[in-house]
């Protein structure tokens, strides 16, 4: 079983997001990049599938940050067998069309039985990478998947619909799966193992060509503008109660005695 996982890095959302000077996107250079959380689930599901049926897991991503190695080492520490990074002039925040094309080109020659990827990523929220890889490769795609079982030439995937309805698909391999959640929480990769791997493991490098570019551009990116504002009142319960009473009286809702 030849399992491939496509990953990408996105800005760390616990960080305060900054908008660039043009107001057309994030100020990528000011942000810290981490692995897309859904991709972490894709890696876990891939390793679980390998543990269940045997085979190899290859993790691949476009290096848009110069720091993809860290994520690849972590994946290797979690049980992936090999790692590939696509290099080239791909800046942070490279659009999903480009990334999907680069990955599809890189993995075509690997003849994967199944490709797993996060169903979406918080940076562009378009959930396109999986379907586009499938389109480029000409294989079926199922998204929002919460569990994959592979059996001779077929995969049984569980998909979650809104309202708590589940569906089970049987799909002929090869296929692409957009993972919503692995059927077990992603495992922890001990740092000593990651560091060990960083010293010894080899990451294959593939030079990526030009991507198709996204068909759309972001015209304006901005933080939500608040319509009003909240005022916090501090003080003892009596004081606050008094302020409330005054306010209500001011607005003419009650009369102050």
């Amino acid at each position: 079983m030849n399992i491939v996982v496509s990953i990408k890095q996105i800005p760390n959302l616990t960080d305060e997001l900054e908008i660039n000077a043009e107001g057309t996107g994030l100020d990528h250079d000011a942000l810290q990049y981490v692995l897309n959380e859904f991709d972490e689930h894709a890696i876990e599901e891939a390793v679980l599938a390998k543990e269940a049926t045997g085979g190899t897991v290859t993790v691949i991503g476009v290096d848009t940050t110069g720091e993809l190695d860290g994520a690849l080492h972590t994946a290797l520490a979690k049980g992936a067998d090999s790692a590939v990074k696509i290099t080239g002039d791909f800046p942070r925040g490279t659009d999903s069309h480009t990334q999907a094309k680069l990955i599809a080109d890189a993995i075509r020659g690997m003849s994967p039985d199944i490709v797993l990827t996060g169903v979406q990523a918080a940076d562009d929220r378009d959930g396109q990478i999986g379907p586009m890889i499938a389109a480029h490769l000409g294989v079926p795609y199922v998204g929002v998947v919460t569990g994959v079982q592979v059996k001779e030439g077929k995969a049984v995937v569980h998909k979650e619909y809104a309202g708590g309805v589940m569906a089970e698909f049987e799909v002929a391999l090869p296929m692409v799966v957009g993972v919503q959640a692995a059927h077990q929480p992603p495992r922890y990769a001990p740092v000593s193992k990651i560091r060990q791997i960083a010293k010894t493991a080899k990451i294959d490098e593939v030079t990526g060509g030009a991507g198709p570019r996204a068909g759309s551009t972001v015209r304006r990116m901005f933080k939500p503008e608040s319509a009003g504002h909240a005022e916090m009142w501090e003080g003892s319960p009596e004081e606050v109660a008094d302020k409330i009473a005054t306010l209500l009286a001011e607005k003419g809702l009650v009369k102050r005695g």
């Binding site: 001990p190 740092v191 000593s192 193992k193 990651i194 560091r195």
Partner: peptide, 8 residues
């Protein structure tokens, strides 16, 4: 017990 992270 995360010795590696501690060392880092």
């Amino acid at each position: 017990g995360e010795e590696g992270l501690f060392e880092q």
